[in-house]
């Protein structure tokens, strides 16, 4: 889902003619879709390519049965279409920004330690714990 959204976002930007070239091209780099075609004319609802369900599921480490894939496909298509609709928004007089909802001003934290008090609860919540380590399935480093 996130992936579908992510590859949708850059396209959104193409709807408006580029004013801030730097920011724009860098946004585009974010798209991981191998079939990215900068065709602003084709943008609009349904103008985005249909999501590749098996690939999305694989990236998210979710196993889907063919039936489930069939069931989810139109739902995800709907999300993509929604992003397609956003492309119709006129951005002509909007200053491009790196991020949405930036509250200028300090959002930083002082480098002061505050150990988390309820460590026991965290450890408790671990699915598999082998004191003092978290136990996970075997991961091979070398082949």
């Amino acid at each position: 889902m996130l992936s579908a959204a992510a590859s949708g976002i850059p396209r959104l930007r193409w709807a408006a003619p580029p004013r801030h070239t730097l920011a724009r091209t860098q946004w585009l780099l974010l798209s991981s879709s191998p079939t990215r075609t900068p065709a602003p004319a084709a943008a609009g609802p349904g103008g985005l390519e249909p999501p590749d369900l098996p690939r999305l599921a694989k990236s998210a480490r979710i196993s889907l049965s063919p039936e489930e894939a069939e069931e989810f496909s139109p739902k995800i298509q709907q999300v993509v279409d929604w992003f397609g609709q956003l492309q119709a928004v006129d951005l002509e007089c909007i200053e491009p920004s790196l991020r949405a909802g930036t509250a200028a001003g300090s959002s930083l934290r002082e480098d002061r330690p505050e150990p988390f008090a309820n460590r026991d609860a965290i450890i408790e919540a671990l699915p598999s714990y082998d004191d003092p380590y978290i136990k996970v399935p075997r991961v091979l480093n070398k082949e």
């Binding site: 992510a6 974010l30 991981s32 990236s59 790196l98 991020r99 930036t102 959002s107």
Partner: peptide
């Protein structure tokens, strides 16, 4: 590798 980078929505930009 396909890392599917996208902007971290939980952090504001660093100005």
């Amino acid at each position: 590798a396909d890392y599917r980078y996208f902007p971290e929505p939980d952090l504001p930009e660093v100005v």
